[in-house]
Design a protein around this nucleic acid. Sequence first.
DNA 1: ACTTAGCACTTGGCCTTGTTGAGTGCTAAG
DNA 2: CTTAGCACTCAACAAGGCCAAGTGCTAAGT
Lengths: 344, 344
Amino acid sequence: MLTERQLLILETIIQDYTDVGRPIGSKALERQLPVHVSSATIRNEMSVLERLGLVNKEHSSSGRVPSLKGYRYYVDNLVKPDATDKQTLESIRTSFGSQFFKSDEILAESAQILSEMTNYTAIAFKPESSDVFLQGFRVMPMGKQRVMVILAMSDGTVESQIFNLPKHINGEELEAMVRVINDQVVGLPIAQVVNKLHESIPLLLHYVHQPRGFLDVFGKILDKAAQDQFFIGGKLNLLNFVENGDIDQIKTLYSLIDRYDDINDLIGNSGENIQVKIGNELTNSSLANYSLISATYDVDQHGKGLIALLGPTNMPYSKMIGLLGTLREELASRLLDYYNLYDE
Amino acid sequence: MLTERQLLILETIIQDYTDVGRPIGSKALERQLPVHVSSATIRNEMSVLERLGLVNKEHSSSGRVPSLKGYRYYVDNLVKPDATDKQTLESIRTSFGSQFFKSDEILAESAQILSEMTNYTAIAFKPESSDVFLQGFRVMPMGKQRVMVILAMSDGTVESQIFNLPKHINGEELEAMVRVINDQVVGLPIAQVVNKLHESIPLLLHYVHQPRGFLDVFGKILDKAAQDQFFIGGKLNLLNFVENGDIDQIKTLYSLIDRYDDINDLIGNSGENIQVKIGNELTNSSLANYSLISATYDVDQHGKGLIALLGPTNMPYSKMIGLLGTLREELASRLLDYYNLYDE
DNA sequence: ACTTAGCACTTGGCCTTGTTGAGTGCTAAG
DNA sequence: CTTAGCACTCAACAAGGCCAAGTGCTAAGT
């Protein structure tokens, strides 16, 4: 167990390192600590902290730097979320603006706001789509033998795909088929749509010889919709924390952050309210200098989503955790407004 | 006017610099030139080229490097497009795959192929959209007082927007209004759609008090469609030619290349078949180390488009110009197939 | 038993100095 | 016009010296 003074020293080292980014020595600490003790005493205390693995030296005669374990200890035991001041709250609310027509826009805006306020990179995931349902389904002729299938989801997203019709089918048959499909699937949660359609194959055989082609289209469209579930703000900010001139690292980071699977892996949501992953706790080794704070948000019966902030390991955790806490509430309330408007 | 030998030396300097990226000295040239002359002679010739501004020294006793003027001279007078060999052509064709359903996909694929073959960054612009017309127009109810408007273009793109209905309007009135609008604008080139609708305002007043809201939606959607007219492949390759560790330059480049206006400025199409812009001929100073080769492609009555390649100033111009020439023909032919399929 | 002053030691960063290799311009002879 | 020879230049690199900030340890003070 650490003494009060050791806790204080650890905390001060972390805060100072956050500010200046250079190792902190005993004399510098002597000046900063609220209680006065000599630098020699501080040196003794620091060597205890070092033995515990909470701080490191960069070389044998350098000052101390928080270790990942030190950050972990700090985040688990010492950090207290900063209360978000009124001005910040106000500025979040004005940034959000007044009215949204698509839930995607709300998410994208959240990521944007978060990245602008922090100068880090923000990621916003849509609420689990279990309650997004198929709002409508239209077919539009494109030339003689081709049609465009348009699917609209209840969250305002639209997916479309063109494909060729079998030769024998004519306009009326198509109309009839569309009506059948409409009856079967409109209003269903998107995850169920493809299953339901598979059940209806016997019915569809009246109209098309190979209904699988049709079903593939649905499958493909819905897959795509499921992939498009996150929004990123401040991608460029990632670059601020790359070791100088390491182009390869930049490339790795950029290809990482564009892919849904990788991002998803990265966050590996444990279901906790607010979760902090530090340095090597992130799966990808290019992210050794980064930490990720993620927070779930809750839109009542519409499911849970997640927002996350990716910044340097030495970010000001109290401030960021506080901010993320505020933003998730604002985001949830916007989404709730959105859904309520829609339910009426 | 340059002598044969001077031309040969200039050309060799450029080719060698393309390979190794370091200044070329008289002895190195002595080894490489097809005709044998002593290094002293070469030194004399090089000092002539330097007086003409075609080559530079990096410092008083370094070898020579082609100047931008040198590249310009080379591109204007010496370069001959390499014939694309059969293997390359074959690999372009297989990369294109067999079938596309949206013209956007063809463009995106072109940019992708071009960037992969060159390891540079490729940009593909859609043909001028003058002959893209509004294929269809659908309205889909979303809850009680909101509808989603979906516009499908003849090139397979779809735009959608949700908006609130005025309170007094009911389903039947909406249907009627949709029919009116459909009659007026479906089949028109998108540029004319908004104008035509403005003419129809008196007609629309039967159904809505403020038809402008409706028209804004169209305007906004069509604007968006006009903006989305380019595709980029190999963005990350830009990083390969950044001076080591200049994070700021990276940021500038990245924000440049995401914006339609900037890209458009950059290319500033002169209408020439193939056009090369070198270093400071590009408007943006972050691109001093880059050259841009652009080529128009021609899809007969469907208009002209443009593909471009952004790489380092010391790229192998002959090879790249040859490749771009081939790719533009392949691209044009794909697009032509696409349109013909559609026109049938 | 804890705290502190003092001291010898370590290290990265910065500056200076020397060396080397590739290159240059110039001169004089072929 | 071409070429060999020579004195000179410069970037890149390595080696050495110095400094500031820091450390661990010891011995004395409370």
